[in-house]
């Protein structure tokens, strides 16, 4: 296993599955950008160092798959209301960690990048129209991991959504960087090997010239 992965596993410990914060640290090892954030324990006081507003406050637990449904996400917090909402979230989930992140502003659509393990062919990487409606759009493309940047570009071109990269309504989205990200995610899956069962980066959005993974879920075998 890659050295960087070994180090990640050392800090991760022997938990069954990573929470969002762990998962984001994992994808960061493969040059995938995530919002600046801090994980705080159930007893911790709010301490966010130099993270800039606005803030998103999320419950951070590998046991909770759908945060929104459980009211585990609070958006659009400015400096003033952050303390109250952080407290509110701690009261709502007294045993769980809380993640406070800078809330990215972005243009254009949300994408999803994911990994599954096909029983016959092994890990496959997916890109698709993301967000909460991703399973309704079903606008996806798959390749086996690891996949090259060229393969990843083909995947993007297959999507119904692909015309957004042709300067659609003035959107200036970087297709090459998204393809590189897909390829990097596939490389991560390849390096993790059999241990990785499923991975979702959803949504991943284009913010300030970079693709940023707003939410990451990783499930181990």
């Amino acid at each position: 296993m890659e050295k960087k992965l070994k180090r990640w596993f050392e800090t991760f410990g022997d938990k069954e599955n990573p929470d969002e914060f762990d998962a984001k640290r994992l994808v960061m090892l493969y040059s995938i950008k995530v919002p600046k954030g801090k994980r705080l324990g159930p007893e911790d006081a709010l301490n966010i160092d130099d993270i800039k507003p606005p803030y998103v406050v999320k419950v951070c637990s590998s046991n909770i798959l759908h945060k929104t449904e459980l009211k585990g996400v609070l958006l659009n917090n400015d400096k003033e209301c952050l303390q109250d909402n952080f407290k509110l979230m701690q009261d709502r989930f007294p045993k769980e960690n809380i993640l406070v992140e800078n809330q990215s502003t972005y243009m254009g659509p949300e994408f999803i990048i994911g990994i599954i393990k096909d029983p016959a062919l092994g890990h496959a990487v997916m890109v698709g129209a993301g967000g909460v409606l991703t399973e309704i759009y079903k606008d996806t493309a798959f390749r086996l991991a690891p996949c090259s940047v060229t393969d990843a570009t083909d995947m993007i071109d297959e999507l119904v959504l692909s015309p957004v990269f042709d300067n659609f309504r003035g959107m200036n989205l970087d297709k090459k960087k998204l393809a590189q990200t897909i390829s990097q995610v596939s490389r991560l899956a390849h390096d993790l090997g059999d241990k990785l069962s499923q991975l979702d980066i959803n949504p991943i959005v284009f913010s300030d010239g970079e693709w940023i993974a707003l939410d990451v879920k990783v499930m181990f075998e």
Partner: peptide, 9 residues
């Protein structure tokens, strides 16, 4: 499968 990706596969 519990992930979106798994369901979409």
């Amino acid at each position: 499968v519990s992930s979106h990706t798994g369901k979409l596969a």
